[in-house]
């Protein structure tokens, strides 16, 4: 693989994942912190849907570990949740590509809810804490930002896909 195709294919994806990680670490005021979308999950769903062969469960797992360390959660918690939703996305990616934007957003909403539920469930099993109902806020805001993110990434995605 020459460095040029590497730049074309992987760099946009890597940059977008890094930006998602940054957004998830960024300090936010108390009031809106509970509504911070799960940027990393959204990005991983997007790339798993667009280029399922290159960005599969392995990448999701590693990114999840990084997220675990940066958020100070149990090592493996985000990794597991991200792996699961990436798996579901890859399995249904042909179907998801056919969806109109509204239906796709609903699917992402459901995936995001699964992601949150897994995190919630692991917290419960490990006895870490019992979050309140605002815990589910990111699922809502995630669905709100998804269409914008999707349109923004479509251009980049076309490039990544066509060079595949």
């Amino acid at each position: 693989m020459s460095s040029k195709t590497f730049r074309g294919r992987h760099l946009p994806v890597i940059i977008s994942i890094v930006i998602a990680l940054m957004l998830s670490m960024m300090p936010l005021p108390e009031g809106i912190r509970n509504f911070r979308p799960d940027w990393v999950a959204l990005i991983m769903i997007h790339w798993a849907m667009a280029v399922p062969r290159s960005y599969g469960v392995g990448v999701a797992w590693v990114v999840g570990l990084v997220l675990d360390v940066s958020q100070g959660t149990l090592l493996g918690q985000h990794a597991l949740a991200l792996t699961v939703i990436t798996f579901i996305t890859i399995k249904s990616n042909l179907l998801m590509r056919m969806f109109p934007l509204l239906q796709l957003t609903a699917t992402v909403f459901a995936l995001n809810a699964v992601y949150r539920f897994l995190l919630f469930w692991i917290n419960g099993v490990a006895g870490v804490e019992a979050p309140s109902s605002v815990y589910w806020g990111p699922v809502l805001t995630g669905a709100l930002v998804w269409p914008m993110m999707y349109i923004l990434l479509s251009g980049i995605r076309y490039r990544v896909e066509s060079r595949h």
Binding site: G56, W61, G64, G76, I90, E161
Partner: peptide
């Protein structure tokens, strides 16, 4: 080929392995 999930080798197995690994880590 690039998008057909059936062609991605041992996807399910890989996922199971990673989930098990996560649980061990946790």
């Amino acid at each position: 080929n690039t998008t057909n999930p059936a062609r991605i080798p041992v996807l399910g197995l890989r996922t199971l392995f990673l989930i098990a690994l996560s649980i061990v880590l946790m």
